[in-house]
Each structure stands twice: as structure tokens, then as C-alpha cells.
Amino acid sequence: MNKKTLSISAIAATLYLSAAFPVSANQVPDFGTCLNPQWSQTQVNYSGKHGVVNVNSFNGTDTIYESNGNVLQCLCTDSGAGYQTNWLNASGYSSSEIDYLKAQGWMYVADGSQWGLQQSPYMAKNISYTCTSCTPTPTPTVTTTPTPGPTATPTPGPTATPTPETKVESAAANNTLASTGNWLVIAIVFLAGVSSLIVGMVLRKSSK
């Protein structure tokens, strides 16, 4: 391989990688989880209807956490279904970065103010969990740290109508094949492999 070919390959590889991975993992902050939030709590709404981007509106307790302009929304509905929405402030993101995040399962929200956030674009990602539905209490605790917008609880605005497409990472969907690593499963897989091999070899011999 000559120098020219090497240089062209290196340039091509760099261009490909920069197009494929425009947002490094460091640029997407660690939102954590609604099971044990680590960010500053800015608001709690114990009652009322709260919107989940691209899903629907639900009655329940909505808790908002913030860090560096990014928002973690934890909605525990009255039925015990939990929706965690990671709101990534995308005001400084290029279109290729936004496209990359979309491919990673994020949804683009052009104007966060429709969801009670700042008036800037956001990328949103929903994750489901289960939770204990709270009984509404008359005196909700609200801390005085900066709120994300004029109405701090993300609620769907006039244009934010729910779409049939629901983008929520389901916990139940991941519960398949939960017994990996189990001796029984290992034995069955090996047995199937060896039986298949024996039958295959016998068939191959007899076909000669």
C-alpha cells in the first residue's frame, strides 16, 4: 500500500467517523434515573394533568430536576406507571448532531416553551418505570431554585398533540432471556449444539 492510498484511507475514515459520531458521549450529560435522581429538584406538582412528549397526558405527580439547562422530568401517574423524560437543551447543537441523536432514539422538540421549558430547542427521550402513585397532598413542597420556564411543569401546549407513535423504552420488553448464565440454559444450548452437529455429520456422511 503506497503513501497516497494510506492518506486517502485515513481522510475517508476521519470523514466517516466525524459524520457517524458527531456527538460524543461526553456531550450528552448523565441524566441519571428517576429512581434516585441526583440533580437539583426545582418543582413538584402533586396533581393535575402532565404531558409526556410524544405519548399522552396523565394525571399524577410530576417532579422536575435541573442541571445546566437540562431537565429531568419524573412523572408518576395515578395508575403507577412512571415516565422519565430526559430533556436535553439542544440550543448549541448542529443539525448533524441533532440527526445523530434522533438516530439514538431522541425526539426533537423545536420549542421547549410549549412544554414549560426554556424557549429553545430540546431533544427528549422517554424511559418507563413503575412507581408508587402518590396521594395528592394539599401543601406541595416547592424549592426556590431556578425553574425551567414560566410554567415549570412540562405540559403539552396547543401544538403538542400526542401522536400515535409512542417512544418509551419499556422495562418489560427487556425482560426476555433473563435466565442467561444459568447452568440449565447453558446445558440446553450445548446439548442442542452437539445434537445438531451429530445429526448434521450423519446426514453429510449418508449423502456421500
Binding site: N182, I186, S196, V199, M201, R204
Partner: peptide, 28 residues
């Protein structure tokens, strides 16, 4: 036809054994 099935089974056995080995690795 027999030959094709035989090769299919042999290839299938290899994938089973690979998965089995990986599961064994996960176990340990």
C-alpha cells in the same frame, strides 16, 4: 438436498456452541 440440510445443521450447531460458550463466559 440432504447435503444442504447437513451443512445447515452443522452451521446451526456452531452458532449454538458459540452462544453456549458465551453464556458460560457470562456465568464466570
Amino acid at each position: 438436498m440432504k447435503k444442504i440440510i447437513a451443512w445447515f445443521l452443522i452451521l446451526q450447531s456452531l452458532s449454538f456452541l458459540t452462544v453456549g460458550l458465551y453464556q458460560l463466559y457470562l456465568h464466570e
